[in-house]
């Protein structure tokens, strides 16, 4: 499939169009940061805050991606995903649990009869440093095991070497494997460093057919940032105005508390609008975030600050 410029992806976009798209990737970092920090001054209180926090819960991909993950750990997490706060019936399930391919089958069993989906990281997450055949095998395995969603990583080696075509082709190939399974493409913004790179990678990933673009693996010290998310959402909007396709965004890595999560929502709300305020188009990759959100919800309802032991382990 290399060097075949007539190859088109599932969205029917040619490589030439992709090149045209990324050619205009200009971002001014200072202006970008100013806009993002100005959005962070929004004061979200009381019912607006409660509504936001409930949204955050429903948008969470509860995640564990460790070598030490066991079936037991996955069972705990799945239970929490289905019923995050047993003491509050108003709290809905989270969007998904996110695991390694080898644990997809277990996760799938545990979330059966719930709305919780199972997402698997594949394509040799987190580095992606293997031949394409291996990435396809990895992904195919997760799909065969029943994954509803696949989170892949882009080929940063190729990207930083300037081989954008290779990055694009790999995503196209993995999307072919996925077919109707929801594809999230991780840019790993901490590796890309500049906002222009993030914009380019976003557009390449979108054009290659990703259903979502996702900030980070969560395995680097630099995870998601609201600035990176802003660049990505602008790319999503531009891509929509070109194709009519609404792609989603997942932010992951480093979003620890409710305040930060609400700031993401404010940004999505004001820049993208209602359509994206839904788990179908916006997700948080989370492990520790969820507990803070649950605490804050309880605090809003009772007026008292909460201790962690009131909430079950995930």
């Amino acid at each position: 499939m290399q060097n075949n410029s007539t190859v088109k992806n599932s969205n029917n976009i040619s490589w030439e169009s992709v090149l045209e798209l990324i050619y205009d990737s200009r971002v001014d970092s200072v202006g970008l940061k100013e806009r993002v920090s100005s959005l962070a001054t929004r004061s979200i209180k009381k019912d607006s805050k409660l509504q936001a926090l409930k949204m955050v819960v429903s948008m969470c991909d509860l995640t564990t991606l460790e070598g030490e993950d066991t079936e037991g750990k996955i069972s705990q997490m799945a239970a929490k995903a289905i019923n995050p706060d047993p003491s509050d019936k108003e709290i809905n399930s989270v969007a998904a649990v996110c695991v390694y391919p080898s644990l997809v089958e277990t996760a799938k069993e545990k979330v059966i009869n719930s709305s919780v989906k199972v997402a698997a990281v594949s394509s040799y997450f987190p580095s992606g440093q293997v031949p394409m055949d291996s990435k396809i095998l990895d992904t195919q395995y997760a799909i065969d095991a029943g994954a509803d969603e696949i989170d892949i990583v882009i080929n940063r080696k190729a990207f930083l070497e300037g081989d954008y075509r290779k990055v694009f082709d790999e995503i196209v190939a993995l999307k072919e494997v996925c077919k109707n399974v929801h594809l999230k493409t991780i840019l790993e913004v901490g590796d890309l460093k500049t906002y222009e790179n993030i914009r380019k990678a976003s557009l390449i990933s979108l054009a290659a057919g990703s259903d979502f673009i996702k900030t980070s693996t969560g395995k680097l010290s630099i995870g998601s940032s609201r600035e990176a998310c802003y660049v990505m959402l602008k790319a999503v909007l531009d891509y929509k105005s070109l194709t009519g396709i609404s792609a989603g965004i997942k932010v992951a890595g480093g979003i620890r508390d409710s305040k930060d999560a609400i700031r993401y929502l404010v940004m999505i709300n004001e820049e993208m609008g209602d359509e994206w305020l839904s788990p179908d188009l916006f997700r948080f990759g989370a492990s520790s975030l969820l507990d803070d959100v649950l605490k804050q919800i309880k605090k809003l309802k009772t007026g008292a600050y909460q201790a962690g032991y009131y909430f079950p382990r995930g």
């Binding site: 001014d28 970092s29 200072v30 202006g31 940061k33 460093k193 500049t194 906002y195």
Partner: peptide, 11 residues
């Protein structure tokens, strides 16, 4: 006439 020019420093 004094003309003052501003430009951001970024990457």
């Amino acid at each position: 006439e004094t003309k003052t020019v501003w430009h951001p420093k970024g990457t």
